[in-house]
Simulated scan of single mutants.
Amino acid sequence: MKNAFNAEGAPEPVGLYPHARKVGNLLFLSGVGPRKKGTKEIPGVELDEAGHIVSYDMEAQCRSVFNNVKLILEASGSKWENLVDVTVFLTNMKDDFAAYNRLYAEYFKDNQPCRTTVEVTALPTPIAIELKCVATIE
């Protein structure tokens, strides 16, 4: 696909879409979660036998999702500092926003893209956070 990118180290998409697509000097990332590549493992998540969330560690998920975004940016010819817009989907704003916001401030202290954070009922896999990002690309 023309101007589409898939990052070697990032988790596989859960549908028919690329990790990112370049349009002009912008890079649009598909939704990125905290899963590990090549497995169904989600850092900080404990599932029961039916695949339902028993417990999760929001900090571990945040760190993993930020790492996955970084991998995709770099594999696509961009970098963390080029992020200009981030949309964050949380499944539990009430309990998770403080931890997420603290870690976001840690990761984005030198680059402060525009940000929107919304609560959603569920995400396609048993995760608590997903990011949708736009970055510039040289």
Rank of each mutant, 00 (worst) to 15 (best):
K132A: 06
V120H: 03
V54F: 10
E106Y: 00
K40S: 14
A4V: 14
A50K: 15
N68Q: 07
N3T: 07
V84A: 01
P126H: 08
Y56S: 05
K109F: 00
N25P: 07
W80S: 01
S64K: 08
K94G: 07
V69H: 00
G44Q: 06
E12R: 11
G15N: 12
I72M: 04
D57C: 12
G33D: 11
L90V: 05
G33I: 08
V84L: 05
C133Y: 05
F89E: 06
K79E: 10
E8A: 14
N67E: 10
T125S: 14
G9T: 13
L103T: 00
A10G: 08
D85G: 02
N82S: 12
N101W: 05
K109E: 06
F66G: 04
V54Y: 11
I127S: 12
T87H: 09
D95M: 06
A10N: 05
V134P: 04
N6R: 13
L71F: 06
V134C: 07
G51D: 13
A60E: 13
G51Q: 13
A75N: 08
I42H: 10
Y107Q: 02
F5D: 04
V88G: 02
V45G: 03
D96A: 04
L71P: 01
K37V: 12
S30V: 10
I72E: 02
